[in-house]
Nucleic acid binder design. Structure first.
Lengths: 345, 345
DNA sequence: ATGAAAGCGCTAACAT
DNA sequence: ATGTTAGCGCTTTCAT
C-alpha cells in the first residue's frame, strides 16, 4: 500500500468489521456481541467489557440495515419536501428530524423540486425502504395519494384527502383576516397571486378569499398561476399593476418578496401605491423592503404533530390514531400594507 | 376490521409483500423474481410479464436494505450540514442529491445544528449505515476529522486537513478583494465580524484580511465571535458602531443581514455611515435593505465536485482520486457598500 | 450467562 | 432460462 493511499484512510468500499470480527477477537459468539451492545445488562460485566474493548479496537460500527429487515424492524421515515430551498420548510425539517430521532427513526429527507413525477418516483422508490412517509405540501392527485396511503403509512401536511391522515394549517381563515385588514384600510379591489395549480392549499385559499370578498362586496381577482419562487415575482408584479387592484395577497412569501423587489425596481411605492401580503412568514419576510405583512404559520408545530401521528401508526401497540389536526395561523402586520392612495370608488 | 381502519390504508407496520410472495404468486423461484426485476433481459419474456403482473397485483416494493448488506452493496451517503436553515446550503444540497442519485446512492441529509457533539454523534451513528460522508463546513477538530476519515470515506468542503479529501472555496481571496474595494472607497478602518471559533473558514478569512490590511496600511479589527445567524446581528452591529470602524466584513450573509436590520433600527444609514459586506451571497442578500454586497460562492459546483470525489473513492475501479479542488468566488457589489462619511484621518 | 441456529429480504454463484 | 443454495450483518428464540 502506497503512502498516499494510507493517508486517505478508510479502505475504498471496505466493509468495516462485522459483529463476527468482534466476536472472534473477544472469544465469544456473535449473538453475545449483539446482546452486549444492545442490552448491556443481559450480559456478564467482564464479558461485556471485553467485547466493548474489542469493538473499540476494531473500530466496529453496527450497520443499521439488517435491523430493518429482521424482526422488530425500525427504519427510516422519508420526508418529501417539494422545495428544499423554500425557507418555509426550515423549521419543519428540523422539527421532524428531532421527533423522528427521538422515536428511534431516521429521517430521509428528499427534495422533489416541485415535480409531481419526481415525487411519485421517490414515493415508489422508497416504499420498500422507508417505514413511512411525511408529505408536506404534496402535489399528488387524490387518486395517487390514496393509492400511496394504501401501501405505506403516511401523513400529509396541508392536504386533506379522505382516509389520509393529515395536519392542516388553517391559512384560509388567515387570508380572510388579511383581506379584512386590507378592507379596513380602504382597499376594494384585491388580487390573489395564485400558486401551483395542483396545490391543495392554493385552492382552499382562493375559495376562502372569494367567499369573503363576496361578503364584503369587493373585487377579488385571481392572477397566475405562478411558480412559488421569488423568480415569479416580476411577472406577477407586472400583471398586478395592470390589473387595477390596489392590494394583493400572494400564495406564499417567496412570490410576495419577488413582487416587492420588482415593484421597487419599477419605482412603485409599497404600501402607498400597492399593498402586499404574503403567506407563511418565512426567513426573509422580516428583513425584505418593506418588511412583509404575512400569515405566520406554526410550521414547527406542524412537523411535530405530523411525526407523532405517523409514529403512533407505526407502533402496533397504540390504540387508534388521530386522523386530522388543524393548526391556526395569525396575521403578522408589517410595513408592506397600508392605505391605498385613495379608497376605491 | 372497522371501516375507519380500512380507510387508513396500509396495515400498521405491516411488512409489505416480499419477493417470495411474488414468487409464489407467479409460480417461480425467488431468485427469478429478483432477476426479472433487476435484469429483465436475463429472463423469459412470458415469465417476466407474469412476474411483473404478480408484483403489481401484490403492490410489491423492493426493500433496498438487503442490497446494502449483500454483495455489490450500494447504499446511502450521509451529508452533514451544520445548519439546514442556512440558505447557503440550498444549492449544495440539491446538487449533492442530484449527483448522488445519478451515481446510484441515496442522500441521507442530516442537520447537525452547529453542534460539534451532535455532528460527532451522527458521524458515529451513520458510520455503519452510510457508505460515505460529505461534510460541508464541519466543526470537527483535525484529530476528530482524521480519525473519522480513517474509518469512512469522506469529503469535506471548506476545510483542509492533511490526508482528508476536500473542496475549498476560495473566500480568502474574496475577502481581500472586498477589502480593497472598501479601501478604494476611502475606508481605512475595517471590522471583521467573526464566525464560530472552530470554523476553519473563519480563521482563513481573518488571516487573509490581516495580511492585506498590513499591505494597505489600514486597520482591521476582529469583532466577535458571533453565532452565524441573523440573531447575532444586533450584538454585532452595536459593537461595530462603538469600534470606530467605518465598514465591516461579516463571516457570512446571515450575520451581515442581521447587522443591516439592526443598523436600520438604530437609524444608521448604510452605506453612508457604515458599509457592510457579507460572504456567500445567499437567498435574501439581494432583497434585503439595502441589497448586500457579498462574495458569491459557487456552492452548487462545490456539491457536484465533492460528490464526484467521494463517488470515485467508492468505486473500486477508479484509479486514483483527486484529493483537493479549489473553487474561486467573486465579489458581487450591491448597495450596502459606498463611501464613508469622510475618509479616515 | 452464553452459544447454536434460524431467519429477515435480497442477490449471486452454481447447478440444472 | 430457471431453480437451488449460500450468504450479507444482525437479532432473536431456544437450548445449554
Amino acid at each position: 500500500m502506497s503512502i498516499s493511499e494510507a493517508s486517505i484512510g478508510a479502505s475504498p468500499l471496505g466493509r468495516g468489521p462485522t459483529i463476527r470480527d468482534v466476536a472472534a477477537l473477544s472469544g465469544v459468539a456473535a449473538s453475545t456481541v449483539s446482546r452486549a451492545l444492545t442490552q448491556p445488562h443481559r450480559v456478564n460485566q467482564a464479558t461485556r467489557e471485553r467485547i466493548e474493548a474489542a469493538a473499540r479496537e476494531l473500530g466496529y460500527a453496527p450497520s443499521t440495515y439488517p435491523r430493518s429487515t429482521g424482526p422488530g424492524r425500525s427504519g427510516a421515515v422519508a420526508v418529501l419536501v417539494p422545495d428544499i430551498t423554500n425557507p418555509y420548510f426550515f423549521d419543519f425539517i428540523r422539527s421532524t428530524q428531532h421527533q423522528l430521532k427521538t422515536a428511534g427513526y431516521t429521517q430521509l429527507l428528499v427534495d422533489t423540486e416541485e415535480d409531481v413525477e419526481l415525487e411519485a418516483t421517490y414515493l415508489e422508490e422508497f416504499r420498500g425502504s422507508a417505514v413511512g412517509f411525511i408529505l408536506p405540501a404534496t402535489r399528488l392527485s387524490d387518486e395517487q395519494l390514496i393509492s400511496a396511503a394504501a401501501k405505506s403509512p403516511l401523513v400529509t401536511i396541508n392536504r386533506s384527502t379522505p382516509g389520509v391522515p393529515s395536519v392542516i394549517i388553517d391559512t384560509p381563515s388567515g387570508v380572510q383576516q388579511a383581506m379584512e385588514h386590507l378592507f379596513s384600510l380602504g382597499h376594494r379591489d384585491i388580487a390573489y397571486l395564485a400558486g401551483p395549480p395542483n396545490s391543495w392549499s392554493d385552492g382552499r385559499r382562493w375559495d376562502a378569499l372569494q367567499e369573503r370578498a363576496e361578503l364584503l362586496g369587493i373585487i377579488i381577482r385571481r392572477l397566475g398561476p405562478y411558480h412559488p419562487s421569488t423568480r415569479s415575482g416580476a411577472a406577477a408584479a407586472d400583471t398586478l399593476l395592470n390589473s387595477g387592484a390596489t392590494a394583493c395577497i400572494a400564495f406564499n412569501d417567496l412570490v410576495a418578496i419577488g413582487v416587492l423587489v420588482r415593484l421597487r425596481e419599477r419605482g412603485i411605492d409599497v404600501p402607498n401605491e400597492m399593498s402586499v401580503v404574503g403567506c407563511d412568514d418565512i426567513f426573509g419576510a422580516d428583513f425584505c423592503q418593506p418588511p412583509l405583512t404575512t400569515l405566520t404559520a406554526p410550521i414547527e408545530q406542524a412537523g411535530r404533530v405530523a411525526t407523532d401521528m405517523l409514529v403512533s401508526r407505526l407502533r402496533p401497540g397504540r390504540s387508534q390514531m388521530r386522523m386530522k389536526a388543524e393548526l391556526p395561523t395569525h396575521l403578522t402586520i408589517r410595513a408592506s400594507t397600508g392605505p391605498p392612495l385613495r379608497p376605491a370608488r
